[in-house]
């Protein structure tokens, strides 16, 4: 069914399904909670809860656009959280990983991002130059990151972080949580990159048809590597935000977050067939799943059933995605 230039309600809904779904869900939830979910506090909570996942989903979303996948996301975020936390502990904390260490907050931030960068390079190298299937390559790096987390933290919690460091993620600018500002910056950057730069066009081209992309002169390996590197950088920063927000990190931090992020990107319309996906869609995907989590908690839905609902939504999203792609 081809839409003509004439605007129609059906065409609008069809084009912006994700956004319309989200808005309708907000309204329905607002009614079910008798306005409770519409208050500013609820929005702040939702935004804070989903910010870290948003970084993960943006990273893996770009990778999925290139027909890849990244299972290492959760563990890399976790490792970054542990490393950054270990450099931000209060100096007088006796159980600190490095007792007495007192560094300005920028050091743990850079270290955490560094962890993400290294894993991004590693994944990108394995996939682009080593020609490993992304699923397997990142399964390997996921396991390595999980092992490093345990070794680094001695399997204990890295807690008692300095207030200055905690403010990075816990602070507010007026009514807006800092976390939201970071996500907004990342979104803006990636949106410009994907929509208004040659590199963005190359990423879509690689995902759409890698052979054609190579023939048309795109350095597919190098570009693929760059996508994994960018994703890794996002994970690194996500890890920093997570430890800053929690005021701690342990070996379970970030566990299984890859599944949430992949689900959010998928629900947000990023196609696993490659070449299709928008930054706005990914964010809507994150918010949609976040709203479902939030709504079910608010309504007191039994936690066990929450998993069923989430699973059903992911399966339907992928099913519809496949039908669209076919």
């Amino acid at each position: 069914m081809k839409q003509l230039a004439k605007p129609s309600i059906g065409g609008f809904i069809s084009k912006y399904t994700g956004y319309v779904t989200f808005v309708v869900m907000v309204i329905v939830l607002g009614i079910l909670t008798r306005g409770g979910s519409l208050r500013l506090l609820s929005w702040q909570n939702l935004a804070i809860a989903e910010s870290v996942r948003a970084f993960g989903a943006l990273g893996v979303g770009m990778i999925i656009i290139t027909r890849g996948i990244d299972l290492s996301l959760g563990q890399v975020i976790g490792l970054s959280a542990c490393v950054s936390a270990s450099l931000a502990q209060t100096p007088d904390y006796v159980s600190a990983l490095y007792p007495g260490l007192d560094l300005p907050a920028i050091v743990p931030v850079i270290a955490g991002i560094g962890v993400g960068v290294l894993f991004g390079l590693f994944n990108g190298f394995l996939v682009a130059y080593g020609k490993l299937p992304p699923f397997i390559a990142t399964l390997g790096s996921m396991t390595i990151a999980a092992g490093l987390q345990l070794i680094y933290t001695h399997a204990s919690t890295v807690g008692s972080l300095q207030n200055e460091y905690k403010k990075i993620a816990q602070g507010f600018l007026g009514p807006v949580p800092n976390m939201v500002i970071y996500v907004a910056i990342a979104v803006l950057f990636l949106w410009v990159l994907l929509n208004h730069t040659k590199q963005g066009k190359r990423i879509y081209a690689i995902g759409g048809n890698p052979t054609a992309a190579r023939v048309s002169g795109i350095a597919v390996k190098f570009e693929t590597m760059k996508v994994y590197l960018m994703a890794g950088t996002l994970y690194g920063f996500a890890g920093v935000l997570l430890s800053s927000r929690l005021g701690l990190a342990n070996a379970l931090t970030g566990d299984m977050m890859e599944l949430d992020a992949i689900a959010a990107a998928t629900v947000g319309g990023v196609s696993h067939s490659g070449g299709v996906g928008k930054i706005g869609g990914i964010i809507i995907g994150v918010l949609t799943l976040g709203l479902i989590n939030f709504g079910m908690t608010y309504l007191g839905v039994d936690s066990y059933y929450q998993l069923l609902v989430k699973g059903a939504i992911i399966i339907s999203a992928v099913y519809l995605d496949m039908r669209r792609a076919a």
Partner: peptide, 24 residues
């Protein structure tokens, strides 16, 4: 595509209706 929306809504409504009872 509208089906996606329908699925979300159906799931949310069922979940909401089934458990919102206690909220009253």
């Amino acid at each position: 595509m509208k089906k996606l929306m329908f699925v979300f809504l159906a799931v949310l409504l069922v979940a909401g209706a089934a458990f919102a009872g206690g909220q009253q």
